[in-house]
Design a protein around this nucleic acid. Structure first.
Lengths: 227, 227
DNA sequence: CCGATGGTTCGTCGTGGAACGAACTATCAT
DNA sequence: ATGATAGTTCGTTCCACGACGAACCATCGG
C-alpha cells in the first residue's frame, strides 16, 4: 500500500467550487485573464488570485503575462482529459448542477473540448474516421492513414505542417456526455478550425457550446454520417 | 459558463488524504473490508466508515454485505480510469509521496490497474497487439481481429465466452507511469489471468505490484517483445 | 445463552483553508 | 505628472469537515 503518486493534493485542488469553475471555464480552450476567471467563479479578484496561484503552482494551469494582464490556460491536454474524465463520472452519478441549464442539450450536441470538437457531432466524425479506416496505428500510437490524409487535404487541412508539430496527429478523447470516443490531436484541432472557417459553426459567447448553422450541420452530417 | 455537470463534489471527495488512500488501494481490484480499508488509510474504523458511506453515496465505490463483513470495491472501470488519470497528472507534476517508496521501480515495471496489467510490461504487450494488428476497429470501438483471436486461443484464453460478456473485448487505458496506452477490457483481464495461471507472475501481497518470475518475464518478453 | 469481532451513529473538538476588506505594486492611457 | 485598471499581499474572520471516544447494533462461533 501507499504506492505511487499522491493524488489527494491534485484532487483537493480541483475539489473546490471556485477552482472547479475556473478549470471548467478553461476547458473552453481560450486563455482567460484573472479578472474574467474571478467573474466565472463568482469570487473577488483577491480570492481568484490566490486560487490561480495555487493552480499554477501545481502545474494545472499555465500563465502568460501580457502587459498588465495575466492570461491563464490549462497546462496541457492531460489536464483537460482529467477534467473530462471527472465530468464523465460526475455526469453519470447524477452530480448535475442544482439548476441544470436549459442549454444542456446543445452542450451534448456539440461543444469544445479544450481545442477540438466534442459532443454527438464529434463522436459522429470520429466514428466515420474509424469506419473508413482514416486512422491507423503506428509504433507510437494513432496516426492518419493515407486515405485519411487524402480526406483531410480535400477538407482543406494542411496535413504536412500539422505533422511537423510535436503533438500527435490523432488522439482519442473520452466524451463524457456520449460515453464514446471523439477525435483529439492535431487532426481534431484542425477539423474544428475548418468548421469555423467554412462558416459551418461558431463558438457561442461565454460558453463551450458550438452552434452549427442549419446548413453547416447538414453538410457535416452528410460528410460523416452513416452511408 | 456554468455548463455541464458539477465536478467539484466528486473531486473534493477524492481530495481527502484518507479517502484517496482508500480509493488507491481499491485500484488493486480486489474487494476489501471496511476494517482493512481503515488500516490502509491509517484512520479508525469510525472514520473509515463515514468515508466509505460518502464514497458509496456518490457511487464511486460499491458495497456488498457478506455476513458481518462489508466488502467494498470501485464502482466501475470509469472510476478506475479517472483515478489513473489523476495518478498520471500527479506523477508528472511531481506530487510524489514525501517518502517515495523504494518499490516504485517495481511498480512502474508491472502492476495491476483495476483488473488488468499495467506498467512497462503492460505497455509492451499492448504495443505488440497493435503492431501485429491483433486489435481492430469495429463500429462500437476496439475489438479483436481474427489473428488476434487466434493468438488468444493459443495463449489459452477462452475467447468465445469472453465475447459473451457485456464488457467490450478491448479497451485502451492510459498508463500513468509510462504515459502510453496499455490493454484493458476482456482481453486485458484474461491476459493477466493467464499470466497468473501459467505461473509467470504473482500479485505481491498488499500492493498493486505484479512480480514476474525470471522465467515468466523472459517468456512474456519473448512473446511480445520487438522482433 | 455468551463473548468476540465487524461496523455504524452520535457528540465534541480542533484545524485547515476559503473568503473578503484594505492596502499595495504594476502597467496602461492621456 | 494623474487617474484608471489589472493583479497581488496581508490580516482577520468564519465555517466546513475530518478525527476520535464512547456507545450502539449486527453477526459469528460456540
Amino acid at each position: 500500500m501507499k504506492d505511487g503518486p499522491n493524488i489527494s493534493g491534485i484532487a483537493a485542488l480541483i475539489g473546490d467550487r471556485a477552482r472547479s469553475e475556473i478549470l471548467t471555464a478553461l476547458l473552453g480552450g481560450q486563455a482567460l485573464t484573472a479578472t474574467e476567471l474571478a467573474g466565472v467563479a463568482d469570487v473577488t479578484k483577491q480570492t481568484a488570485s490566490v486560487h490561480l496561484a495555487r493552480l499554477a503552482d501545481a502545474q494545472l494551469v499555465s500563465m502568460e503575462k501580457q502587459g498588465r494582464h495575466r492570461y491563464f490556460r490549462l497546462a496541457d491536454e492531460d489536464v483537460a482529459q482529467l477534467l473530462e474524465s471527472l465530468l464523465g463520472v460526475a455526469y453519470r452519478t447524477g452530480a448535475l448542477r442544482l439548476r441544470s441549464s436549459p442549454r444542456d442539450p446543445d452542450l451534448r450536441k456539440a461543444r469544445v473540448c479544450y481545442d477540438h470538437l466534442a459532443g454527438d457531432l464529434g463522436v459522429l466524425a470520429f466514428d466515420a474516421f474509424r469506419k473508413r479506416r482514416w486512422i491507423a496505428h503506428d509504433e507510437t500510437g494513432l496516426t492518419l492513414s493515407r486515405t485519411g490524409a487524402e480526406f483531410c487535404r480535400e477538407m482543406g487541412i494542411d496535413v504536412d505542417s500539422a505533422r511537423k508539430g510535436r503533438r500527435p496527429m490523432c488522439r482519442v478523447c473520452l466524451d463524457w456526455s456520449a460515453r464514446r470516443h471523439h477525435l483529439a490531436g492535431q487532426v481534431g484541432v484542425q477539423l474544428l478550425e475548418r468548421c469555423y472557417q467554412l462558416g459551418w459553426a461558431k463558438r457561442r459567447r461565454g460558453s463551450r457550446i458550438v452552434d452549427f448553422t442549419p446548413r453547416g450541420e447538414r453538410e457535416f452530417r452528410q460528410l460523416f454520417g452513416r452511408s
